[in-house]
């Protein structure tokens, strides 16, 4: 709640963007909540779906609709995102829904940085694949896939909202490092053609 009384939140990199052979951009602030507990618990499911208005994702999946999404983070963890203007409402909703002490949430909106890669599907996959030890081929990583791994030397999560677009979330403290790596990987002339 501290952000409601403090200064307006700012993006880690002020919305930095780079037009390489794919576009790399820092996305506008989103409300992000980590929900932890038994993923089959009704109250946890209701809290997540009530916020994002999408179905619960399966293991290794993300369910999304625009900026609303629920991502499967681990057997007892979800990441729920909504547009920033729903942040205050979402906090109230979570407080009201998650009354069981074994189910809890943390507001991580300002602990994260969010980037997008957009462009031709094969090239977008390739830029991410240069940095993460993950099979990003269309067969192994179709739209709707969600994968926690590393980008260079830091933890990150990668998902594919739609063909031709990958979104990446990392800790805000390493936003500059991750953006620099993504920008370098997307530099014109460094195309590999891995995915056609």
């Amino acid at each position: 709640m501290s952000d409601l009384s403090g200064p307006a939140p700012v993006l880690a990199l002020g919305g930095a963007a780079f037009d390489g052979y794919v576009r790399v951009a820092e996305e506008p602030l989103r409300a992000m909540f980590t929900l932890r507990g038994d993923l089959s618990a009704k109250a946890l499911k209701n809290a997540a779906t009530g916020l994002a208005a999408v179905d619960m994702p399966g293991q290794g999946q993300v369910a999304l609709n625009g900026e609303h999404c629920i991502a499967w983070m681990s057997p007892d963890e979800l990441l729920v995102m909504t547009p920033w203007d729903e942040h205050a409402k979402a906090l109230g909703q979570l407080d009201a829904t998650l009354t069981d002490p074994a189910l809890n949430y943390t507001d991580v909106s300002q602990a994260r940085a969010l980037f997008s890669l957009s462009g031709p599907d094969g090239l977008v996959r390739e830029v991410a694949a240069k940095l993460a030890p993950v099979d990003l081929s269309p067969a192994a990583f179709p739209a709707g896939s969600f994968r926690r791994s590393r980008i260079g030397q830091v933890s990150a999560a990668i998902w594919m909202p739609a063909p031709g677009r990958i979104e990446v979330v990392c800790f805000r403290s390493v936003a500059d490092y991750v953006f620099t790596l993504l920008r370098d990987a997307a530099r014109p002339g460094s195309e590999v053609g891995l995915f056609g």
Binding site: G60, P75, S149
Partner: peptide
């Protein structure tokens, strides 16, 4: 075995 992901050792 917890999340079902297959990865190489630098992720672990």
């Amino acid at each position: 075995p917890c999340c079902g992901q297959r990865g190489e050792e630098t992720e672990f």
